[in-house]
């Protein structure tokens, strides 16, 4: 943990979620950071896909990561969750340096991500998809496979999975192959599956991409529910109205750098952000207000 972020004491989540940083400049330090990046660089040859001096994600709030296409949002996700190799700099999750850890180790610490393209495990049933994600599978260790104990423990996990499936309206599909789900249902399953892992933080890569407006609303409600349950959310999104609806804090990336941070109101009026979106030929800020 970098020294300037050290003195943070764990405070009740209800309190922290309300207290946002006083300033809104890029790289501002926040009351209770859960994920921290310092001097984080990912370069491909001379091109720097990500070049972040300083970035903190606050615990217990919903942070949106926006930016034009090619801004390095997904690359940042990959670096933070160990799915890509960092060229320079480091990330910390809670009090632990996670750069250099394997991606599955980071996930075990409690930072679980989803992917831009929905990835259902198609030839597993929906229930199996859920159970597989659990971090408390007694029978997942090979030497316990032939014991009887895991079956009892599995029952508890099944109950938890059923509750989650209920919440995401997937109960009726529990015993179907995940491959038979519709695109929207797969999105829901992916979120439910991530929650099954009981993460302290979820990183959602474009949870609304390719989803119809009604389902989009549902997903946004789920995101809000996550925060209510104490889970930190970081999500990448293009749709500014969605960002406005749920996010407490917005971070804008462009050309790999953090160009603006603040509440959605502040970021929405930031000239740099507008320039970044207008200057980008491939992307656009979709704002329907």
């Amino acid at each position: 943990m970098p020294p300037e972020a050290m003195p943070v004491e764990a405070t009740p989540l209800e309190a922290t979620s309300a207290v946002l940083p006083a300033e809104s400049r890029p790289g501002v330090s926040k009351p209770n950071p859960i994920l921290t990046a310092r001097g984080l660089v990912r370069s491909f040859g001379a091109f720097k896909a990500v070049d972040i001096q300083n970035l903190e994600i606050q615990q217990g709030v919903i942070t949106a990561l926006i930016g034009p296409n090619g801004a390095g949002k997904t690359t940042f996700f990959n670096l933070a969750t160990g799915f890509d190799d960092t060229s320079e700099g480091s990330c910390w999750f809670q009090d632990q340096r996670i750069t250099g850890l394997h991606n599955y180790q980071i996930a075990r610490l409690g930072a679980v991500r989803t992917f831009q393209n929905t990835r259902a495990l198609t030839r597993l049933t929906v229930m199996e998809n859920m159970l597989f994600a659990s971090q408390q599978q007694f029978g997942e260790r090979l030497h316990r496979v032939y014991g009887a104990k895991w079956r009892r423990k599995e029952q508890k996990e099944k109950e938890r999975a059923r509750e989650l499936l209920d919440r995401f309206a997937l109960t009726h599909m529990a015993d179907e192959f995940a491959g038979t789900l519709s695109g929207g249902q797969r999105k829901l399953l992916e979120m439910a599956r991530a929650l099954m892992a009981e993460p302290t933080m979820v990183l959602l890569d474009e949870p609304l991409a390719g989803v119809n407006p009604a389902l989009g609303e549902t997903i946004l409600e789920h995101i809000l529910a996550l925060k209510a349950g104490g889970t930190t959310v970081l999500f990448i999104e293009h749709d500014m109205s969605a960002v406005r609806k749920v996010s407490d804090w917005v971070i804008c990336l462009a050309e790999g750098r953090v160009i603006a941070e603040g509440t959605h109101g502040e970021v929405g009026q930031n000239q740099l952000v507008l320039d970044a979106y207008l200057g980008s030929t491939r992307g656009g800020m979709s704002d329907d207000e």
């Binding site: 394997h102 599955y104 992917f115 997942e140 599995e154 599956r193």
Partner: peptide
């Protein structure tokens, strides 16, 4: 039969389906 119908077997099959998802959920692929 017992192997593949255990949670271990489920993880094995899940990795076959998508190793990245398995990694993102904390599995040592």
């Amino acid at each position: 039969y017992m192997l593949v119908h255990s949670p271990w077997g489920r993880t094995v099959r899940a990795i076959r389906e998508d190793e990245q998802v398995a990694r993102s959920l904390g599995k040592n692929v």
